[in-house]
């Protein structure tokens, strides 16, 4: 469930990135890299778990599924926080800079 949640997040971010490309004002690319990287790593985890459990891997207990979904959503939230921090620090549209420094009126 964590893998699925992250893969869907990666898909959505990639579509948003492609739709706005070549402009990257919102730095959505950061989210794409982050979610795809995590998805690939969790895919390896899933393969190892499948090798251990066999077909039982695809029939998890509802409580485990719920916990994994909760974890997946938390991971997406963390990814969004990291992206927001980078966006505000890099400030590609200069919004923070404009808010901090006001032009002196003559």
């Amino acid at each position: 469930m964590t893998l699925l949640t992250t893969v869907f997040a990666a898909f959505i971010c990639t579509i948003i990135w492609y739709k706005n490309a070549p402009k990257s004002e919102m730095k959505v690319g950061i989210l794409c890299w982050m979610f795809w990287g995590a998805s690939l790593m969790w895919l390896v985890d899933a393969i190892f778990e499948y090798a251990e459990l066999g077909a039982a891997y695809f029939t998890p207990a509802p409580v485990d599924m719920l916990n994994d979904l909760f974890l997946g959503l938390s991971v997406v939230a963390l990814g969004l926080i990291i992206w927001l921090v980078i966006l505000l620090i890099k400030d590609p549209k200069g919004v923070i800079k404009t808010a901090l420094f006001k032009k002196k009126t003559q």
Partner: peptide, 20 residues
Amino acid sequence: GWLNKLLWGGSALLAFEHVW
């Protein structure tokens, strides 16, 4: 840099999972 972002992003989110 693409590889860096994949590795750093993935590791960060997996580190969170390990804390979880």
